[in-house]
Amino acid sequence: MSHHEMTAEEVSHHVRTYLKVFGALLVLTVITVGVFYLHLPIVGAVVVALIVASIKGSLVACYFMHLISERGLIYWILALCALFFVVLLLLPVITDHEAVGTVTH
């Protein structure tokens, strides 16, 4: 469906969704900060923080950026983008981890 054919009713339906997403994002922000004050061990803290941030990021991308109602090529391009992003993030792991931070002469 093209956005150009949206009726006023559809738009106001969208607005209700935006407000729900807004509420969810605020709750998740409270969770992010609340979990920090629990002082979990580092691995647990990283896992929880990244999961919550990923949920928030997905909500923004799907609803505010309308990704959930897009069709076609864009998914493939973004999938490729996500793949390269993961490779970028794994670079430190792929690199010889033991050698990181040691002084080489």
């Binding site: 956005h3 992010t32 900060v33 920090f36 580092i42 803290a45 990283v46 923080a49 990244l50 919550v52 941030a53 928030k56 990021g57 923004v60 991308a61 505010f64 950026m65 309308h66």
Partner: peptide, 25 residues
């Protein structure tokens, strides 16, 4: 405005990751 919004939401999205990574971890 939709295109401007796409960019703006992306800037928001980056902050959603920056905040826990820099401040909380």
């Amino acid at each position: 405005i939709e295109c401007t919004g796409l960019y703006w939401h992306f800037v928001d999205l980056v902050w959603i990751f920056l905040f826990p990574v820099l401040y909380l971890l």
